[in-house]
């Protein structure tokens, strides 16, 4: 290989190449795939998942895992709808306060998650799994199993209002992604995530308060989950316990497909953007080319394996868990 395209460079851009290849394949199979209309559809489907993926990226960079997102999204969505309606039910009234409040609720849920993990010394897999149950339970408690409709046209404009062919929520999600990138690359806490993931012992030995970093990480992740829940509610205009359904597997798959390693220390939010797009392009593409519904789960599985094999650097690894 020439010096211009070194192996490391190729590896770094591999996820993007996989995404481009997928777009080419689906466009070749059905030219309707390559249109602003369809890309907007992919964007809408990706927006909530991207927020969840950005949040969990920080946790995965630290070498931990968070499985509480379905619960966190359910709680945030349901509490948002309840507050929003109680305070007037329109963004034009004081009910807009429900938006920042929801982000705080998400942060609070994440904080609790982090405290259970760090203070009770429960591995994040189990702590967050349990907190996920608590979240689902809490949302059931609030709604009694019912759906809450959020019909304010101003709020739904996240979906209905389009600029440059893409709905408002896609633009909002990209802005949030930039904020996520800023946190990751230009703040102390962002650098510390990598320090913890790269080697916890070393980070601890050099005087870093690892526990504090972990708890803060879960808190920031929680705020991003809450943002994702807002997009998810805006999508269908309904907040319910099932709002977070399937987001756990989709988001973690996306993060890994994007090239962030589950053992921590590398990757980032841009990888997660590519990962979310890969997963959603596959999902959308399968529908556009008319693949029968019953085959889609299996094909997604095979393509995800292929994508991970192609897009992550596993050569240097001694073993994989």
């Amino acid at each position: 290989m020439s010096d211009f395209v070194s192996k490391e460079k190729l590896q770094k851009w591999a996820p993007l190449l996989v995404l481009i290849a997928l777009i080419c394949v689906f466009t070749f199979a059905n030219s309707n795939f390559f249109s602003v209309r369809n890309f907007a559809r992919i964007g809408i489907a990706s927006a909530p998942a991207l927020m969840i993926a950005v949040g969990v990226t920080y946790i995965i960079i630290m070498g931990s895992i968070d499985l509480s997102m379905e619960g966190a999204v359910a709680v945030s969505a349901v509490l948002f709808a309840t507050l929003f309606i109680a305070m007037g039910g329109s963004l034009a009234s004081w009910a807009w306060l429900a938006l920042p409040l929801t982000l705080m609720i998400g942060g609070l849920f994440g904080l609790l998650n982090g405290l259970v993990h760090v203070k009770l010394k429960i591995p994040s897999f189990m702590a967050s799994l349990s907190m996920g149950f608590v979240g689902i339970g809490l949302s059931l408690l609030i709604t009694g199993g019912d759906r809450i409709r959020v019909e304010d046209p101003l709020f739904r404009s996240l979906l209905t209002e389009r600029y440059l062919g893409f709905p408002l929520m896609v633009h909002c999600a990209l802005v949030a992604l930039l904020v996520g990138w800023f946190i990751q690359s230009y703040t102390k806490i962002g650098r510390n995530f990598y320090a913890v993931g790269g080697g916890e012992d070393l980070a601890h030995a050099s005087g870093l308060n690892v526990k504090k970093v972990r708890v803060l990480g879960f808190m920031i992740a929680g705020a991003f989950y809450a943002l994702g829940s807002l997009f998810a509610v805006a999508q269908i205009g309904i907040a319910e316990t099932a709002t977070g359904y399937n987001l756990m597997f989709v988001s973690i798959t996306s993060v890994v497909v994007g090239g962030t390693a589950l053992w921590g220390g590398n990757g980032g939010v841009w990888n997660s953007l590519i990962g979310v797009l890969i997963v959603n392009v596959i999902n959308n593409g399968m529908i556009v080319i008319g693949l029968p519904r019953y085959l889609q789960d299996g094909v997604l599985g095979v393509l995800v394996i292929v994508a991970v094999v192609l897009s992550t650097d596993r050569k240097s690894l001694a073993f994989v868990k």
Partner: peptide, 21 residues
Amino acid sequence: LKVPSFISTLAVGGIALSVGQ
């Protein structure tokens, strides 16, 4: 293929689901 088991088993589960359907 060195794909983390979290992803590999999830993907194979998807294949099993398709076979079942």
